[in-house]
Design a protein around this nucleic acid. Structure first.
Lengths: 217, 217, 217, 217
DNA sequence: TATGAATGAGGTTTCATTCAT
DNA sequence: CATGAATGAAACCTCATTCAT
């Protein structure tokens, strides 16, 4: 079920051809998201993707070279691109690093965890080994910039005395680790063992960025 | 890479039928571990498993009903059972909770992360949705007891004033989150972006269980 | 031996999609008739059917869900449907029941006995137990109506004093029994012990419907 | 579950070896009868035969060369041999041919029709084409002698004025045709459309061998 | 541009048969 | 003699991909 797309851009008369194509491509990606995240890469059938997208089987091949390309396109446009938003975290004036993260991370992760994007991410974790190109671009486009950005923020936090431990600058992974747990847990055990993702992530940030305790005095 | 098997007992005459069967079963599981972790569930070929195990194609079916059963058997005996060791963590006399965890977790995870078991775990994260029975027994046999045990230890730690935050008792997930990151990172980016797993896990524990900051003197 | 198909309509341009599909379906059924009747259900290979039909292996599965469905389709369209013709037997004006049967049965059976349809019928006798649905529809579509129709004719014959014995009304099976023998005999022993099917069936009807023994004068 | 074995034959000391072998062979044939008649030749599994006979899988091969040989042995000893009894029909003193047949045929056929032997016969009708050797020996050992014997009896009956029609001498098949119908009908439709086999066969013989009608006078 | 009928490589699974014990 | 673990040929069926329309 394609998510309701934003209203057609105004100039629909001007370039109807290209516009229609973009739309169809998006419909195919939506369908692929659903199928791949439900069944996994190997078990997803191209025919089902086409049917769900409401196009002919051959049409999918007009937009994507083959199944691999479809999967890669999917990961790029549905996972990597949306996550890129997180790279933009900028402190509002007077905002501490802890505050930025608390504001940006928990809601973003909670949202991802319960959508198809979470399913796809989980899938990607397992399939990554078999899609080295994909893992590589994932790394280049998201992991490395995110690590760098996080390290930057953490260094700044450390300079400002916000940080529980300097080691976080070396291992920024520790900041996002619970996010991963949230995504995986929700998909695998969420039904039987519900998890309050936002609360957990908040608690975690409270540990890493201890709120200034009142002076003991 | 088959795990090093114990040296063959010399008294081959004495080895009863059952023993030979057990050995062959293990050879098949080793082979399956290799194939499934390399290629994923769907892409792994039963024939390759058989060949790698040095048995005929039909022989695999004498030990496992079908491909699903082989995968499930593999996860049980290669992942769930070995991890069970972690449940046994017991404090040595006079040992703090932080010390127990520092002693038990980092080496265990570092070991898992670079073997095929790590690959299998990654795979399981993606395939779990399609093997609900598997996910369930994984949850029942390992996730739930581990969560409970961890909560116990954390409550104890909190009582002893070791803990950075009481919230950990509510979210023991936070203790193991970096372990998951270690396993995933190693598999997907370990080549390009090596990660010192033990150091990272140590740093994490140092944050959760702050070492008493009394002057060393 | 594929039944002679009607000459291809010349206007190949006009032939719509559905027509081509119907033709291909028929080609597959012809091939299946040959293979199943030669080798039996279990020993017939789907690949051979496809090859004989001149289509790819997968194509057969576009027309029939699986091997069972192909067999069932075959029996329906090659055995049950054609036999339905026999149900239509209607007396010409002034024709006695004996005359109808003499006119309709022997040629029909003789034709069936020496074609693949006979082979298929023989096969069906043995496989019927394992295709209960098939046996049931065979019974519903052909056996029961035929029994009823025959009983009707026989009652009428009896009323007209044509019949050797009233018991025939109770056991119309006795009228068709020799037809079965003809079909089976031809298939199993026909080579070594030829049987004049038409003569035998004629003789049988002469016994059941004794010709009036008035002196020929 | 091995059938309880009959008390050891008396001279069990004298040739215990051969006796035991004969018994085991018979157990295997019994099991084969059950399996082949239930599932058909191709679908019957050698392992199931062995299990039902209570012997090892390999043991069957000590008694029969292969699956074909087992099937052929089965048909010989379970079908052809028992039927041979029918060849022995001899008139009691003063008994007419009609009386002999009425005494011998209906009960024999009724018995066969509802046992596994009937199933096997049905099977044989379909498989015969694929077991030419079997069909041939069936023909040589049973069909031809039976036809000859029947013809003899019919000639005699004709000479005695018992016969409805001389044509029966030419087509003795007509005498046994209803027996075949009985066997087939019982197996395929017996459940839904029960048939009184004995009555039907009796009625048939009454037509072929009209009971001397009282003089019309 | 769009379609979907056709294809056949490739995968899983079964089972008759062998043979070391 | 008897066994049953092991084998691998063979069969069914699926599905990514192509291409004529």
């Amino acid at each position: 079920m394609p998510a309701p797309r934003a209203a057609r851009p105004r100039r629909s008369r001007l370039r109807p051809r290209a516009e229609k194509a973009r739309l169809k491509r998006e419909r195919i990606l939506d369908a692929a998201l659903e199928e791949f995240s439900r069944k996994g890469f190997a078990a997803a059938r191209m025919e089902d993707v086409a049917q769900r997208a409401g196009v002919g089987k051959g049409t999918v091949y007009l937009y994507f070279d083959d199944k691999d390309a479809l999967f890669e396109g999917l990961v790029h446009e549905m996972v990597i691109a949306p996550l890129a938003g997180l790279l933009e975290m900028r402190p509002a004036p007077g905002e501490s690093v802890g505050q930025i993260l608390r504001r940006a991370i928990p809601p973003a992760i909670a949202r991802v965890a319960r959508t198809r994007v979470g399913d796809l991410l989980r899938l990607l974790i397992g399939e990554g080994v078999r899609f080295p190109k994909l893992a590589e671009s994932y790394r280049r486009l998201w992991i490395e910039p995110m690590t760098a950005r996080m390290r930057e923020l953490l260094a700044q936090a450390h300079a400002q005395g916000e940080l529980a431990s300097e080691a976080l600058v070396k291992f920024p992974h520790l900041v996002v680790a619970p996010a991963l747990v949230a995504i995986i847990w929700t998909g695998l055990f969420g039904r039987a063992l519900p998890l309050d993702v936002q609360a957990m992530l908040g608690a975690h940030l409270d540990i890493l960025f201890p709120r200034p305790s009142r002076p003991r005095s």
